[in-house]
Design a protein around this nucleic acid. Structure first.
Length: 560
DNA sequence: AGCCGGACTTAGGAAGGGCAGA
DNA sequence: TCTGCCCTTCCTAAGTCCGGCT
């Protein structure tokens, strides 16, 4: 007799296809294209050098992109302005180009105001208008938001073609401000099964190509003009395909758990190697494992912001301290990582690592690679020889998940379970350096909460006095129950205090990323079961859908 | 061996929406 | 009923890693 658990698990486990085949049938309606550009009304003009200029449609559209962003800081950045102006001029007619030579002489004021008015109008829409808009959007979702994969209806993640606009990179991106062009059906490749209803291109257009490749999961793709990279239309995270992949990822990380001790022994031994490559590999692995650094692929200079990961660290990103704050052998890291988020950390390391790094830095200067013999492909080749499926990023997943599990065991306080959970989650977010900009209204909303807490404290004091009073007059005839009132008051006070602590500790930490991408959901599901916490308390609707596989199959005894 | 295109995951910020308190 | 706040959803950029090619 098989258990419910086994049946549920098998449902997710059944792997129909081998050797890279992802589906047998795929049918969809193609991507949704953004609406065509609507020309400016006659009473809104662009001015050049103080004179009204009626722009061609193409130039006008791009001008509006810039005007819309005028409130944003990056329209003041030199690189952004230059890139924009250069690309804008390409969209102009010859006459426009010869007239409009300097961005400083351009007056986008009326276009900017028009945009602001539109935003305002949208905000002030009546209930009926909002409802109508919502219904129209729903219709679009109904038509384009779903596909049929192996006869199951699945949600598509991003079914809309990205609208044109000005490219906004993160950090000091050399291409910021460049024009991201409007995507035409003629740019789009459709992927679906041969025997399916082929999506119909918008009237008067045709697709670039229709192909039937069942070894990939995307439904449509196009090449974006700024970076020349391919963009894809893919399934939603709650789809079976994505869920299975996610599960697989955590299974690989669990496998690492079973052999991580050996791997650690090995790279500690490798620290003594006379081979420079081996020694650099060992140090890199030490950092990746201990600090959850990303692999750090090399990037093309001048094409993207200057950011690094482990293998691409340079001399200027680390400082060695023989002694620092009472610790020996401290490595100070200071670099911009993914999304130009700063990684700053002072880490005491073992002597061998410290001495090795010192050696690697010898005769190098600012701009040189710390690991000059190493790259991610070499590193990953080594890792995959230690364990099938092992790559650098598995360490991040493994260390994140194991940390959550350990922290949950260590921290869980029966009285403030959710705070404990968030603290465990936070420990992981800190490990992975998942930061966010402090919310703009942080200080103020913190103060508001504090005021409420004070008020509640007073109320509690009052309730306590009343309770004493009531006890004295043994036969209380009041219609309210003072005991209950005091109890409620205490509850609410505790809740608010916990909230305040949680919020303060969360000021610059983003919990979502690790929750969504690094923490094996089965750890959380099991914890909820053990603690009697409803799963809704830690996963919202979207998250529950994404982690349906884990919620379905996990029992209280799950161990990562 | 190194390079590059391709496919997929991971990431933070902006926009949207719903709800509690004024 | 309005307003401000917080959470969710949307958006798309920026990573990782693989495999095929030269």
């Amino acid at each position: 007799m098989e258990t419910v658990k086994e049946v549920r698990t098998r449902r997710w486990e059944e792997k129909k296809y081998e050797d890279g085949v992802k589906w047998m049938s795929l049918e969809h309606n193609g991507p949704y294209f953004p609406p065509e550009y609507q020309p400016l009304p006659d009473d809104v003009s662009f001015y050049y050098n103080g004179k009204k200029v009626k722009l061609s449609l193409a130039a006008e559209e791009v001008a509006l992109f810039f005007a819309q962003m005028l409130d944003h800081e990056y329209t003041t950045k030199q690189v952004f302005r230059e890139n924009f102006f250069k690309d804008w001029r390409k969209e102009m007619t010859a006459e426009e180009r010869s007239l409009i030579q300097h961005l400083e002489k351009c007056d986008f004021g009326e276009l900017h105001n028009l945009h602001k008015a539109k935003v305002e109008a949208r905000k002030n829409m009546s209930k009926e208008e909002k409802q109508a808009l919502k219904e129209a959007n729903q219709k679009i979702t109904d038509e384009y938001g779903y596909c049929l994969l192996d006869r199951h209806k699945e949600r598509i993640g991003n079914f809309k073609i990205e609208p044109p606009g000005l490219f906004r990179g993160r950090g000091e991106h050399p291409k910021q401000g460049m024009l991201k062009k409007r995507v035409q059906p003629e740019d789009v490749i459709i992927n679906c099964s041969k025997d399916s209803r082929i999506p119909v291109p918008p009237a008067g257009h045709r697709w670039k190509e229709v192909r039937h490749d069942n070894t990939v999961t995307w439904l449509a793709s196009w090449t974006e003009n700024v970076q020349g990279s391919i963009k894809y239309i893919m399934l939603n995270a709650n789809s079976k395909l994505k869920g299975e992949k996610d599960w697989e990822k955590y299974e690989v990380a669990r496998k690492l758990k079973s052999c991580v001790d050996d791997i650690r022994d090995q790279y500690l031994r490798d620290l003594k190697s006379k081979e420079m490559v081996t020694r650099q590999r060992a140090v890199a692995l030490y950092f990746i494992d201990k600090l959850a650094l990303r692999a750090g692929n090399e990037k093309e200079e001048g094409e993207t912001a200057d950011t690094v990961g482990c293998c691409s660290l340079r001399v200027e990103h680390i400082t060695l301290h023989d002694q620092l704050d009472g610790n020996e052998c401290v490595v100070e890291f200071d670099f911009l990582g993914k999304d130009s988020i700063r990684y700053y950390n002072k880490v005491p390391v073992i002597k061998k690592v410290f001495k090795s790094v010192k050696l690697f830095l010898e005769n190098k200067e600012h701009g040189d690679d710390l690991f000059d013999r190493l790259n991610t492909s070499l590193l990953n080749k080594h890792l995959s020889s230690l364990m099938p499926g092992l790559t650098a990023k598995v360490f991040r997943t493994y260390n994140a998940s194991i940390t959550l599990q350990q922290q949950l065991k260590a921290l869980t306080n029966r009285k403030t379970k959710l705070l404990s959970y968030n603290r465990a989650n936070r420990a992981v977010a800190i490990l992975c350096n998942h930061q966010r900009a402090p919310p703009k209204t942080f200080e103020q909303s913190m103060a508001t909460l504090q005021t409420k807490i004070e008020a509640r404290k007073e109320q509690l004091a009052l309730a306590k006095t009343e309770l004493k009073q009531a006890k004295k007059e043994a036969k209380a005839k009041g219609n309210s129950d003072p005991k209950l009132q005091k109890y409620r008051c205490e509850e609410q006070l505790l809740k608010m205090e916990v909230q305040a602590t949680d919020r303060e500790e969360n000021k610059q930490i983003a919990l979502g990323t690790s929750k969504l991408n690094y923490l094996d959901p089965r750890i959380s599901v099991a914890w909820c079961k053990n603690m009697g916490v409803p799963i809704e308390k830690i996963y919202n609707k979207t998250q529950r859908e994404k982690f349906a596989w884990a919620i379905d199959m996990t029992e209280a005894d799950f161990e990562f």
